[in-house]
Design a protein around this nucleic acid. Structure first.
Ligand code: DGT
Ligand code: MG
Ligand code: MG
Ligand code: ZN
Length: 570
DNA sequence: GCCGTTTTCGGCCCGACTGTTTTCAGTCG
């Protein structure tokens, strides 16, 4: 049975939307959203947790929600949802996605005009019925029309690897602006989340209003969504929204904390403040009117009795409860080598020597060339004869550069549908490192895929499993598999699991890395580079590793050369 | 609807910007 976590999470979000449109109690609605978030964050199959009776142990899931999940897993329905849908049209949920349309507007349009879906809304706008709604004026109408236009053309969330470089460029150009003392990137970008909704920028300046006005007049700005004394929102090219917040020096730390989020982490901190009879907001931590602290993030966390928490951990995934036993997170400088890359021999765009020089430039102590195997025909996979020739070439190049870097000869070998490996054992014995990856039959059942990966790990030559779930973020779902079984088997067979650092993959993903670390599995971070420039993608691997709570010792390619080379054989 | 060890009842984060409101609701961060 396929994992139903996402499906169930979205049902709870939908129930929350329906309840909100029908004017239910806001806290109850919040509970549904919290439950949905908790389910989205699960690394394990919700059905397995339900069967083990572990659902109610999850924070945010109580008796009532547990019952609903059980009902859904058994019958495919939740009666509470069915009842709600008899009252509230399902099509209204879509209307909430329009910027500027909230639950109140949707509810009045529904009750007073009979609007039940997107089509009905468009019609009521066209016929002029819509402007007859109470509190509705020409500006609001215009705004909603723009919002409607936006959701029809917008492609949704963007990938970290696309947006972060853009944000960093904007950051640099703003830093040069007069009157601006500091510019920091906040929000999901600072937390290095795999997908990004918008760019959040925090500015330290004294004359906020002036600065914001100046920024909204930049030529890159396509549309000004709002402009006030302390914050502004604009849209730039590619429909990227930029939210800008300006605060003075004494509030910079608290504002950065607020603006980094995530929202649930913020609420947790604010609740700690409340318990101490204080108030936390973006301007500082206050006892009545008196500011206790606010200049730095460290100061805020310290006053609340917490160590500073790395932004990558601020997801309300246990970082506050475990604040005093947080891992010492891996850093970019800890990486001693890149172990997954392609060359012209298969589908890469650079020569062996170019890739070697790229790795030397990164300061690595070792590297590994891993071109594709026979069955990856479209990717120029090497048949045994070509592999043998490639081995000679890589060894030769290795000799030339041996003073600067240890060049390992490996392969990214296909795992066949039944778990057999594309090269025979004798051939693999000639390689320093075999990463085995699935490139076909991605839609296999969870049972088959799990069995396939376990079988691959049983091969003594298979040192690591490449991009284990085969997802392409926003394009292709992860293949179904029993992650707990795979992680356990990786530990048992002493097989490494890859964290593929390409920002389209980031596979294993953060919550799976955390699960792997807890089970004692070892991770290999590889860029899967197809050219020199992509070697830079290691940064995304590090960010994701940190989001997965990984320490240096969890990652094999942090070991110094001599120690690492000893581990090449399982 | 969830949660808790000073609570099993009664809280649940807090603030900015906009528009049409003549005093603040709605939406969003
Ligand atoms: N306290 C509090 N902070 C919030 C709330 N909404 C947003 N924030 C803070 C935390 C967020 O990380 C930050 C930026 O808001 P965004 O809507 O841009 O969210 P974020 O960047 O986390 O995710 P995104 O990728 O943009 O969807 O503002 C809220 O309701 N309460
Ligand atoms: Mg954001
Ligand atoms: Mg934002
Ligand atoms: Zn691959």
């Amino acid at each position: 049975m396929a994992m139903r976590n996402k499906e169930i999470a979205s049902i709870f979000n939908e129930i929350a939307d329906l309840l909100e449109i029908s004017g239910e109690n806001a806290f109850r609605i919040n509970s549904y959203r919290n439950a949905a978030r908790a389910i989205e964050d699960l690394s394990e199959d919700i059905a397995a947790l339900q069967a083990a009776g572990k659902l109610s142990q999850i924070r945010g899931i109580g008796d009532r929600t547990e019952k609903k999940i059980e009902e859904y897993l058994q019958t495919g329905k939740i009666s509470a949802r069915e009842d709600l849908l008899k009252k509230v049209p399902h099509g209204l949920v879509t209307l909430l996605k329009i910027p500027g349309m909230g639950p109140k507007t949707v509810a009045t349009a529904w009750k007073q005009l009979g609007v039940e879906d997107l089509e009905g809304l468009v019609k009521s706008l066209r016929t002029g019925q819509f402007e007859k709604l109470p509190g509705m004026g020409p500006k609001k109408i215009e705004n909603i029309k723009k919002g409607l236009d936006f959701i029809t053309r917008s492609a949704g969330r963007k990938l970290l690897g696309i947006v972060l470089p853009i944000a960093e460029e904007i950051q640099e150009s703003l830093r040069k602006l007069e009157g601006i003392k500091k510019v920091e990137i906040g929000g999901s970008l600072r937390r290095r989340a795999e997908t990004i909704g918008d760019i959040d920028l925090l500015i330290e300046a004294n004359e906020g209003e002036k600065i914001l006005k100046k920024i909204t007049e930049f030529p890159q700005v396509r549309e000004v969504l709002s402009l006030g004394e302390t914050k502004a929102s604009v849209r730039i090219t590619d429909d990227i929204q930029v939210d800008i917040r300006v605060v003075p020096n004494e509030s910079f730390g608290s504002a950065l904390q607020y603006f980094t989020g995530n929202k649930d982490h913020n609420i947790q901190l604010r609740e700690i403040a409340i318990k101490k009879k204080w108030k936390l907001n973006e301007y500082g931590l206050f006892e009545d009117e008196r500011r206790l602290t606010g200049e730095t993030e460290e100061g805020i966390y310290a006053k609340l009795g917490l160590p500073w928490i790395a932004p990558e951990l601020r997801e309300n995934r246990g970082e506050i409860e475990n604040a005093n036993q947080l891992p010492k997170l891996i850093e970019q400088a800890d990486i001693k080598g890149d172990l997954h890359m392609h060359t012209l021999a298969s589908d890469g765009r650079c020569t062996i020597e170019e890739m070697i020089e790229g790795c030397i430039a990164k300061g690595y102590e070792y590297m590994c060339i891993t071109d594709h195997s026979t069955s990856s025909r479209v990717a120029g996979g090497l048949d045994p004869d070509r592999l043998k020739e490639h081995i000679r070439h890589v060894r030769q190049a290795g000799k030339k550069y041996h003073k600067d870097i240890a060049v390992l000869m490996g392969s990214e070998v296909d795992i066949h549908l039944d778990g057999r490996i594309d090269y025979d054992d004798a051939l693999m014995a000639e390689l320093d490192l075999v990463i085995a990856s699935v490139h076909s039959g991605l839609g296999q059942s969870s049972e088959k895929m799990t069995h396939r990966l376990l079988a691959a790990m049983d091969n003594p030559h298979v040192r690591a499993i490449g991009h284990p779930t085969c997802r392409l973020i926003g394009q292709r779902e992860a293949s179904e598999m029993d992650m707990a079984a795979i992680i356990n088997h990786a530990v048992e067979t002493n097989t490494w699991l890859e964290l593929n650092a390409h920002w389209m993959r980031l596979d294993l993903k953060d919550v799976h890395l955390k699960q792997a670390r807890e089970a004692g599995a070892k991770i290999l971070i590889g860029t899967d580079s197809h050219d020199i420039a992509s070697l830079d993608n290691m940064r995304y691997g590090i960010y994701t590793a940190r989001r997965g709570w990984l320490e240096t010792k969890d990652v094999v390619n942090t070991l110094p050369r001599n120690e690492f080379l000893k581990l090449l054989k399982k």
